[in-house]
């Protein structure tokens, strides 16, 4: 479990600001964090720790933004939080790059939610079912023959 305590709090607020407003509907933010947790599990331990540290850094670095008046990201209202992240992402340099990578990761998790996909008109499962069935209807003989040939002998006939 990477996202716990202050890291989870920072990640939650970050997700609320970088994802589209729909993230606040129902339990979507929690599910984004759940997906994010799974993604972090696929990283090397060092990278995982680094990501956790960057969430906390972004949260705390908000204190330096003029509109934050010394507050961390988690304490900012939406407008100030948005202004802070906009400024951070637009800055040249490593900080912006890291924040940009985290933003990418979090919004990827958001657009994995079934309802977020449906809202933008992406519903591939019925389509995949239909074209897969059409493939089998049209080409089953050829498919069967090829599958059967996967293990068929095929030695080189000539010597070089």
């Amino acid at each position: 479990m990477v996202l716990r305590g202050p890291v989870r709090t920072a990640a939650r607020r970050f997700a609320e600001v970088v994802c589209p407003p729909g993230v606040r509907a129902g339990d979507r933010t929690d599910r984004v964090l759940g997906e994010l947790e799974l993604m972090l599990g696929a990283l090397q331990p060092t990278a995982r720790t680094a990501v956790a540290a960057v969430f906390v850094l972004i949260d705390q670095a908000a204190r330096l933004h003029p509109r934050a008046r010394g507050r961390r990201l988690g304490r900012l209202d939406d407008e100030a939080a948005d202004a802070y992240l906009r400024a951070l992402l637009a800055r040249p340099g490593t900080a912006a790059q890291l924040a940009g990578r985290l933003k990418s990761l979090v919004v990827m998790c958001y657009y994995e939610l079934p309802e977020a996909r449906r809202e933008i008109g992406y519903d591939p499962d019925p389509y995949i079912t239909a074209v897969s069935r059409r493939r089998l209807d049209r080409y089953s003989a050829d498919i069967r023959a090829t599958e059967a040939g996967v293990a068929a002998p095929d030695p080189w006939q000539d010597r070089r």
Binding site: V17, V18, V107, M108, C109, Y110, Y111, E112, I120, Y122
Partner: peptide, 12 residues
């Protein structure tokens, strides 16, 4: 969508 969102500019 996740891959496209990952490279889109902007947030929120």
């Amino acid at each position: 969508p996740p891959m496209l969102a990952g490279i889109m500019p902007g947030h929120g």
